[in-house]
Amino acid sequence: MAGIALENYGTYDRANTVRRFGRGDARFRLLTLSAALLVVAIFLGVLISLVLGSWPSIKAFGLPFIWTETWNPVTEKFGALGPIYGTLVTSIIAMVIAVPTGIGIAIFLTEICPSALKRPIGTAIELLAGIPSIVYGIWGMFMLAPLLQTTLQPWLIETFADVPVLSGLFEGPPYGLGLFTAAFILSIMILPFISAVTRDVFETVPPMLKEAAYGLGCTRWEVMWRVVLPYSRTGVVGGCMLALGRALGETMAITFVVGNAHRIASSLLAPGTTISAAIANEFTEAESELYRSSLIELGLILCFITFVVLALAQLMLRRLEASGGKR
């Protein structure tokens, strides 16, 4: 494709060549445009196919599907409340653990870490963000769940036994498998992701701003809290929203450890399920049309939740790019 073979023409016909170039240009442009439109088509295809797939279930259960807790494949009564609750609770707990820790790591990397360690630790964290979720899942089931069952969970139950609200959240036997363990593994999974994004955002803060603050005699905490974080707020929030989007849709890491019970227990330590875990576990076993379409409707709900979160994240990050993120 390299050379434009003009020598093929006996007599050089300029008008003809220019026309040929124009046609080639138009064709190539059309080719790239249609590839780009294919991306949009895939997106719309996902939405349309999910709506069509869940139509029998939408027709049968209507809107109450969202707030019904029953999930009974035998009587074919389905409701999404259990999985929705599990998805939200695990993601929220994961964010509560991972956001401060992830930002802490990012701060460590940008401000505190000796520069000799900066690159290796940074690279290690980025590489770990790429480890497939199934690996986290198998590790969570064989290593983390037994560990939590014998250490953290009994401690939580004992410590909060007399505290009014918390005793309800941490009660019952420590199963090991359950929402709490799922949330914990999720937090470990999204941790490198949050630190990598936050660190990148922190690095867009002009050194001059920080140096000015240090020059005024600010402590590291004050520089971080009053200068760096306000400057990079949009980016940090956007990065966290991306991580939340990931946590909401995460499947394999959770399926192993969540316990797969379609009910809402008051205790966080009890087994539960999430939307993605329910789909992964039950989809191939779903014999009836209604069962399968209920699972697809779960997928539609997940789609809706994550797309809203991701869209917000995109808007925030884009605003950052448009305003402050000078490179």
Partner: peptide, 8 residues
């Protein structure tokens, strides 16, 4: 799409 859940 880049960060959409793969199960979807």
């Amino acid at each position: 799409l880049l960060s959409a859940p793969s199960i979807i």
